[in-house]
């Protein structure tokens, strides 16, 4: 039983980090309609900024630098590239984001090299024990931070004029614009928020049990894509739920692989995509995505 609980907690705590990334994907999509395939590089950028600045300014100030830096890069990508697209087609924007991803990742890879940059997190390799279960302290903190962040996002979208404006812009941009909502402002806010979430996720993805900042972190971010799609492209609560589902299912599949060997080795690697496909077959709009109305 304690083994089952260990794997459940492993899965949920990692799933919350995936949720942070998936929520960033969803926010950018709802605020500007862009499939942001550069999000993985922004996750790596946030963590990289923390790793290179913490020796001089301390860890917490470095986290601030990472968060602000990732947010600024997000806003700049939106202002300089996305908003100036001659063809506002989602496909064009997605290809553009792939280009941005390659550029950012190439530069970060060049700077990091074959090193693994330590993040300098004060919790180091500490673990929290309760009952017979040991969980990395960083993951427990990640869970706490994620819950606070998601509560803040709920408040933003449900209780503030800016958040309601963002929802209106997402639902019907032209009408929202006619109602006086500045789409440039809601778009910039969305990209900045996604940057903040990416940097926070980057910090937790690169601290123990991961060793530090290395280029594969950008690949890890892509594990959040099934969570985002599963939750519904345009739903932040869906992205959170999707992250939890993917984290849990992956940990349990890996944890009980010896019992599931009839499915083949490495089933844990494909199970997120299998779950995504099954859910989309049953609910094409994802778990919490808005259903597209089609008038025939």
């Amino acid at each position: 039983m304690s083994y089952f609980l260990t794997q459940v907690l492993n899965g949920l705590s990692f799933g919350l980090v995936l949720s942070l990334i998936a929520a960033g994907f969803a926010i950018v999509f709802t605020s500007t309609g862009v499939l942001n395939f550069a999000h993985g590089s922004v996750v790596l950028l946030g963590a990289y900024l923390v790793a290179v600045t913490h020796p001089t300014i301390g860890f917490w100030a470095a986290v601030l630098v990472g968060v602000v830096g990732a947010a600024v890069v997000g806003v700049l990508v939106n202002a300089l590239l996305v908003r100036n697209l001659a063809d506002p087609n989602p496909g064009t924007a997605a290809i553009l984001m792939l280009g941005v991803d390659i550029l950012l990742l190439t530069e970060l890879t060049r700077r990091i090299g074959n090193r693994v940059l330590p993040l300098g997190a004060p919790w180091g390799a500490d673990v929290v024990r309760f009952g017979g279960i040991a969980l990395p302290a960083g993951r427990v903190l990640a869970a706490g931070v994620a819950v606070v962040v998601f509560a803040g996002l709920w408040f933003l979208f449900a209780r503030t004029r800016l958040g309601i404006g963002m929802r209106a812009a997402a639902a019907d941009g032209p009408t929202a614009s006619l109602m006086g909502i500045r789409l440039s402002r809601t778009g910039a806010t969305g990209w900045a928020l996604a940057g903040v979430l990416a940097a926070l996720a980057g910090v937790f993805l690169t601290s123990f049990p991961s060793p530090g900042v290395a280029p594969p972190v950008a690949l890890s971010a892509f594990l959040a894509i099934p969570a985002w799609v599963l939750g519904g492209f345009d739903s932040v609560p869906g992205a959170v739920l999707g992250g939890l589902v993917i984290g849990l299912v992956t940990a349990l599949t890996v944890g009980y692989e010896s019992e599931l060997h009839v499915l083949g080795g490495g089933f844990g690697e494909v199970v997120p995509y299998l779950v995504m496909i099954v859910v989309l077959l049953v609910r094409p709009q994802g778990l919490l995505g808005s259903k597209e109305a089609v008038r025939v």
């Binding site: 083994y3 260990t6 794997q7 492993n10 899965g11 990692f14 693994v116 990395p136 993951r139 993805l205 690169t206 049990p209 991961s210 060793p211 530090g212 290395a214 594969p216 972190v217 690949l219 890890s220 892509f222 594990l223 992956t250 940990a251 890996v254 944890g255 009980y256 692989e257 010896s258 490495g266 844990g268 690697e269």
Partner: peptide
Amino acid sequence: ITPAVTDLSAQASALVQEGVQAVVLGAAPA
């Protein structure tokens, strides 16, 4: 595993559960 997996919590827990006396790794430094 794949190179994208840099948190091996689930894998390590599974190996401990299986009672392995050693681990051989064909992966990368992370």
